[in-house]
Design a protein around this nucleic acid. Structure first.
Lengths: 124, 124
DNA sequence: GCAGCGCTACTACAAATGTAGTATGCGCGC
DNA sequence: GCGCGCATACTACATTTGTAGTAGCGCTGC
């Protein structure tokens, strides 16, 4: 298992999201996939990808023409875990977090039930 | 309602946590309340509080001796909302977030039931 | 009333982060 | 086979964030 104790910045995380979604992509692909009012310059995305490579979060797979393809080298789950843990830490527990979701209407009781059902199924 | 679209850094959020907990505090109080292996210098905390003041996240309440007391000027909930929204955005929905919590064992089925119960009660 | 101490106000600075330009190289199309 | 164009590698820089020092002022105790 790779060392997954890698800290990612906001933008880096965004790029990782694209890569997880696409599986494999060039810098150009990533740039195109980023949805923003003011899209970042090509070289900006390139820099982020390079930093991710240095951190060991992505790796090169192949070359097509003279463009490199990259793929994630760490799992989505490991990154989520890190982020979620931080938030839980701040809020003071996972239960308060979910309670907050319910309170603010982000999550309905039906959602909760659905999750419960799924969880039960997968546990068996 | 005050403008609560204030972006806080990690450390700033930590300080806000202390203030929400204590209600009102001096810089010294905040420093003492921060639990770290290597505690930050007094003036470091002071700087953070000052930045928070500039951002409108805290305000001065009174002076005791020559020490200032500060209190939160934005709600805990508004900050949580911001953080949680960001995470939900990244993960792609609140349901997947909770599912992740259950999967990784951060949240048990019992927790879910407990939350449901509370939610139902408060809804009535 | 004054000395000392703690607190504030101001300044400084390194590292991280976001953002992008420049130079150069390599492959594709003609 | 050669040049054009896109991609890469490298460099640069402003801003934000974390971290802290210094100067000086106002209370408080004596």
């Amino acid at each position: 298992m790779a060392n997954e104790r890698i800290a990612l910045t906001k933008f880096e995380t965004e790029v990782m999201s694209v890569l997880w979604r696409l599986g494999e992509a060039t810098v150009r692909d990533v740039q195109d996939a980023i949805d923003r009012a003011e899209p970042p310059a090509y070289t900006t995305v390139q820099t982020i990808v390079q930093r991710l490579e240095q951190k060991g979060a992505v790796r090169r797979t192949r070359k097509a023409g003279n463009a490199l393809y990259f793929e994630p080298a760490i799992t989505r789950k490991s990154v989520y875990r890190r982020l979620v843990d931080e938030l839980i830490d701040l809020i003071g527990g996972s239960q308060p977090l979910v309670a907050h979701l319910v309170e603010t209407g982000k999550l309905s009781l039906d959602d909760l039930k659905a999750i419960e059902k799924t969880a039960k199924r997968s546990k068996k």
